[in-house]
Amino acid sequence: MISLDIVMPALLGGGLIGLAASMLLLFNGRILGVSGILSEALDFKGAGNKLWIWLFLLGLLAGPRLSDAFLGTSEPVFEERTLLVTILAGLLVGFGTTIGSGCTSGHGVCGIGRLSQRSIVSVCVFMGTAMVTVFVFRHVWGG
């Protein structure tokens, strides 16, 4: 049974995410895609004004602590991952989102918002693959 007090924070949080993406597009004309913004921040040879990129990342970093202080959330506690899983997952997420041109925010929130076919394909593929991965490691291999 899905209860309202579990759904509401998710829905409100999602609403804030959609609002942020809409504002960045309306004011600055930019797509709110975190993997793209990270990739741009790491493009040391690229010319042009990068200040907005770093300020966006600063805002991103400030969020969780402020949320804990004012919105009643708390520091996430989760199971320990092995070093191998942590490194492998990080590498795959970084490499995959960069060659695949986006992640949950760029393809998911913004791409679906624009009704982009590429983004809809990407979201179905990474969501499906992630579910299969969890299935394999929780119920086949680990189970």
């Binding site: 492998l88 995959g96 989102t97 925010s105 990407s122 990474f126 693959t129």
Partner: peptide, 16 residues
Amino acid sequence: GAVMFGIGWGLYGYCP
């Protein structure tokens, strides 16, 4: 790219 991202996301639970 989406396949690799999906595997990484499913392994740890973090997207970027």
